[in-house]
């Protein structure tokens, strides 16, 4: 008998679904009903002509649980395809954050300097605040937000991860 691997791994699951009412509720309900984690979730139509949407879910669990998630999601009637991008191989996973920093003086200058280093764009500027737009991998966004914390970090809005396989392959 194969021994079960108990290590917890993170996985990016991409799901191509029929864009119909209730489909997101089906996927989310499955996760909550079976006790799977959702660390982030993005969803948007990707094929208007074919009424398809893509859901990207960052989750974690033992390899066995990740396999189960894939299989359980695959059972849902409006699901076309489901793939664990972490398993498929090299992939690009990006998210966007809007980060509001409220500060003046030295802290404000420092925030702007760090933003430049991170290639974050100031999309809104007032005398006392910035809203930075930053796109990148989750850990890059995390460190940017950490650095902003002592510099007047006031509010964060993040999109969650959108992901795609590198190279010519598709899910």
């Amino acid at each position: 008998m194969t021994m079960q691997d108990e290590t917890i791994v993170s996985a990016v699951i991409s799901i191509l679904v029929e864009n119909e009412s209730g489909v997101l509720a089906r996927v989310i309900g499955l996760f909550s009903g079976r006790g799977y984690n959702i660390e982030s979730l993005t969803v948007a139509p990707v094929e208007q002509s074919r009424h398809q949407s893509r859901i990207n879910i960052v989750t974690s669990g033992t390899p066995q649980v990740i396999e189960q998630i894939k299989a359980q999601v695959g059972r849902l009637v409006p699901v076309y395809r489901v793939a664990d991008l972490t398993q498929v191989g090299p992939h690009v996973a990006r998210e966007m954050a809007l980060v509001k920093v409220v500060s003046t003086g030295e802290a404000r200058t420092e925030a702007l300097r760090i933003a430049e280093a991170f290639r974050a764009r100031a999309v809104d500027t007032t005398a006392t605040s910035f809203v930075f737009e930053l796109t990148g991998a989750t850990d890059k966004l995390d460190s940017f937000i950490d650095l902003m914390r002592p510099l007047g970090l006031a509010e964060v809005s993040r999109t969650g991860v959108a992901a795609i396989i590198r190279g010519p392959r598709t899910i």
């Binding site: 008998m1 079960q4 066995q64 396999e67 189960q68 299989a71 695959g74």
Partner: peptide
């Protein structure tokens, strides 16, 4: 069934390796 080689046939892929890892 600790010492067995396990074969599992099911019409539903999610049932396989859900509870017991099979060969």
């Amino acid at each position: 069934s600790p010492d067995s080689f396990k074969i599992h046939a099911d019409i539903e892929p999610s049932q396989i390796n859900k509870i017991v890892q099979v060969d």
